[in-house]
Each structure stands twice: as C-alpha cells, then as structure tokens.
Amino acid sequence: MDNPTPPPLAVRHLRKSFHGVRRVEDVTFTVGAGRVVGLLGPNGAGKTTSIRMLLGLVAADSGEALVLGKPYRALADPLRQIGAVLDAGGLHPGRTAREHLRIGAAQGRFAARRVDEVLETVGLAADAGRRIRDYSLGMRQRVAIATALLGEPRILVLDEPANGLDPAGIHWLKQYLRTFADGGGSVLLSSHMLSDVARIADDVVIIAGGRVRSALSLDEALASSGGDLEQYYLSLTGTDERAPHAAR
C-alpha cells in the first residue's frame, strides 16, 4: 500500500512552555492543498508561537510541526516551498524596497527577474526606489509579503499580514490569497479580522489559552453558529458573557 501524500502543513500535539509557563498546549491542525486556513484567537492565545514552531524558529517541547511531511529544518530548499510573513518591522530602514528584495533574491538564489515581478504583484513597483524608512506600515507589510513570494512557494504562512494595510491593500490581499489557493496553493493566515477571514477562508482554527477550541471548515463553523462567525469565536474563546463556560 502506497504511503499517502502528506498535507502541505501538519501540526500535531504541539506543546511549548517559556520560563515554566505553558503557552501552547496540545495544538493540532492541518492545512490542505488549495485551502486557506484562518488561525484565530485572542492575544496570547499561542498563534504566533505555534507558527514559529512550524517554521523552525522555536523548538517545541513535544509534538511535531511538518511542512510537506518534514520538519522545516529538514527541507532541502525551504524558501522555494514555503513563504512566511511574521514581522514587517524587521526591514532595514535605509534600504529601498528593491534593494531589500535584490538581497533576498541573491540569498535565496532566485532569478533576478523575480524582484520586479513581486514588486508588481504587491503594488510597489512605482515606489520601489524609496527608502523603507519613508514607507507606511502597510507599505512595509507589502515588502514583507513580496519577500515571501520571491521563491514562488506553494505554501504561505502569514501572521497578521493585513496589519497596517489600508482598505485597498486589504482588498488586494484577500483577492491574491484566494487566487493563490484556488490555483492549488496552501495558506495559513493568522488574523484578528474575523470578517476578512470569513470572506476568504475555507477552514478556521480557533485557539484560546494555548489550546485548539475548534478546527472546522468555515461552512461547518457557520452552520453551528447560525451563520455568525464572530459569535462562534467569542463563545469559544470565553469572551462572550452569554457563554462563560464555553472555553473550559
């Protein structure tokens, strides 16, 4: 019997403590091909820590986080397989967007043409010669997204990618991610913006207190909540006064 093809992303029973305080407790979910998965939860829920373990930036105490069936660090050419946006604040302020991307392309051994291609994709071609110090937060976020796209990956992991984007930027991002997934790509999207996630996600994973409270298709989540994703989220994260025991 042939081994089944592993999902693009698989997180199984992850646990992580910092200074004796448990931050992630038994987090499990998968991201399939052609799917956008919204990773939802309040501040401190464990979303970013889970993502950092998936990307090999933080070692798990136990459990596993796999990309195409392997730990991130075991991938032969990870930047061509998975692109990530974690923090747009780490960009060098004295460089232009084009300079930043040229350095990224050289480090990843990507074709030089990819610099102009991704600048066009994220809508920064006209501003590529400006210093990043003069960019708005939303523009810096677009540079971070462009960097993640340099290697033409089929998996994207984005932690609050809409942070700082104006309405036009949010509209572009939603359209791009939906098109990316419809073409067979896989997206893990951490966000606080429930309404935007509801417009593009195929599945939603809700985390609170370091635990997964729900991992369902969006249709299933809406069906179980009378079509109100916000109310469903609030009840599971323990922030709905009408459902104080839902997160126990």
Rank of each mutant, 00 (worst) to 15 (best):
F110M: 10
V58I: 15
K16T: 03
G238D: 02
I82K: 13
R213N: 14
G89Y: 10
D196A: 13
V118W: 10
A45C: 02
K16G: 02
G185K: 03
L75E: 13
L40D: 05
V27R: 04
A59G: 04
L66N: 07
G56A: 00
S50H: 12
A111K: 06
F180D: 00
G89Q: 14
G44S: 12
I155P: 11
P78S: 00
E220V: 06
L75H: 05
L189D: 05
A162C: 08
E64R: 15
G108C: 02
G20E: 10
A88K: 15
R113T: 15
R15N: 15
E64N: 13
M53G: 06
G209R: 10
R178N: 09
V85N: 09
G41I: 00
R113P: 01
R52E: 14
A243Q: 00
R133P: 11
G227H: 12
G83A: 09
V143R: 10
R130A: 14
S217W: 08
D166V: 09
R23S: 15
T28V: 07
G138D: 01
A126D: 07
A33P: 10
R35Y: 04
A201H: 01
G164W: 02
L14I: 12
G63K: 01
G108E: 10
A198C: 07
M1V: 14
G210A: 13
V157R: 05
G227W: 00
E99A: 06
R109G: 06
